[in-house]
Amino acid sequence: MERSHVPVLPAEIVEFLKPDTTNAGPVVDCTLGEGGHSALLLEHAPDSRLIGVDADATMIERARHFLGPRASQVEFVCAWYDDFWLSYTGARPHRILFDLGISTFHLAGSGRGFTFREDEPLDMRLSDSVMSAAELLSGISQEDLADIIYVFGEERYSRRIAAAIVRVRSAGGLRTTGDLVETVTSAVPAAYRRGRINPATRTFQALRIAVNAELERLRTALPRALAALSPDHGRMAVITFHSLEDRLVKWAFRAASGDESAVGRSAVTAKHSTASKFAPKLIDTVAMPEGERITILTRRPVVPSYEEVAGNPASRSAKLRVVEKTRIEESW
């Protein structure tokens, strides 16, 4: 078995999340993947205990393999991270990590249609517990499809693309990712096809987010993870890869730190997209247990260095935000 994924911001994750050997709480890697970040953290704290969560059973087995002897320190949990935090009753973690990027294995080796560079089945699932992209596209209305592409892909030609997909679907010609790329490309202006990114990029992102309910899972999981975090200088880090995720994390962290202006904010920005039934729910008040408070350690997101991007181009859009939880000192 060959490792396919390079963890992003490795030095920064170690800097912020290096386990505290005096804290008995576990480290929780909410997006285990192939275990790259987990391996780094365990190397710096060989006696620590780690809980590795991933919705994909294949990734659990890949992580178990690549962690080698370190796997004995890991409790592997095959679950969506929002479901994990909904039912978690264990010791309060002193380090929590979310890496929201899609693994290189999923893009290049899974055959599940995450990339527009290969002609694969329209799947896009991170777990077989949800419907595939093909199933989603087979019955969705043109209006709802346009909303998904606009809200989750921030795609300005969403209505033209949705109309083209429905036409091709009706003719029975939408079976693979290659069919989808061809359909999207034919629906947008010629100048757009020659743009900086493949014209299908945003549509693929939107469908993947919709299939896996990524933003709603994140919106649900963040406050639960923050509440569970140890108040003895526990730290939580989130790596995002697109603006919808980053805005959601930014507002959730601000709300948890007591910034009332963050409550009611949305991950989406366009006025009519916030009214869409597909838009993530607005950020609620993120209440901390009594006597505990959240401090934001990264007022601006940390981004990869020029050297890292040169060596690992997949890291170019990564943004890291980190918070710390402490106890509120009693006043006398």
Rank of each mutant, 00 (worst) to 15 (best):
V286I: 13
F114T: 02
L320M: 07
T274D: 00
F76T: 02
R194W: 05
D54K: 00
E154C: 07
G36C: 01
G52I: 06
R49T: 14
R117G: 07
E34P: 03
V151W: 07
C78E: 15
V28L: 14
L40A: 13
F278M: 03
P304W: 06
S110F: 03
G35M: 10
L100P: 08
I161M: 05
V323I: 12
S158T: 02
I239F: 11
R95N: 01
R95W: 04
S317H: 08
R92N: 09
I148C: 10
R293G: 10
L226M: 15
P69V: 00
V53I: 12
M131H: 12
G36T: 07
P10G: 04
L126H: 00
R194D: 13
L244G: 11
H272Y: 09
A252T: 15
S87G: 09
C30A: 14
V27W: 08
I148Y: 04
T115M: 10
R160A: 12
L97D: 03
S305I: 06
A39M: 15
A45Q: 08
S38T: 14
R224T: 12
R235P: 13
L248F: 09
H65F: 13
V268Q: 06
A270G: 11
F105T: 01
A225H: 05
R193M: 06
G173E: 01
R219K: 13
S72M: 05
R247Y: 12
G109P: 09
T203D: 04
A310D: 04
F98S: 09
H37L: 02
V184P: 00
T298P: 06
A310P: 03
A237K: 01
S261H: 10
S273I: 14
D99M: 03
S276E: 01
R316S: 09
E260S: 15
E307K: 10
T295Q: 15
W332Q: 13
I148A: 07
E34V: 11
L32Y: 05
V309R: 12
F241M: 12
R92G: 03
N212E: 01
T176A: 04
S315H: 05
G234Y: 05
F253K: 11
V309T: 07
N198R: 11
D99S: 06
F105Q: 03
L248P: 04
A210T: 07
T298I: 04
G111Q: 08
T274W: 04
A270D: 13
Y88F: 15
F152M: 02
G111Y: 11
A270N: 12
R196T: 06
D246N: 08
P7M: 04
L50E: 10
T298D: 11
L126Y: 08
R208F: 01
T21N: 12
L282Q: 11
E290D: 14
Y306C: 06
V74H: 02
G90S: 04
S317A: 14
K325Q: 11
R300F: 10
L17M: 05
A270K: 09
N23K: 12
L136N: 02
D179I: 00
R265K: 15
K281H: 14
E290Q: 15
A164C: 08
E182V: 12
R49E: 15
E307D: 15
E329F: 09
V238E: 08
A79L: 09
D99K: 02
I140N: 00
G101M: 11
I328E: 08
P304I: 02
E214P: 00
A237F: 05
R254L: 15
I149V: 11
R327Y: 07
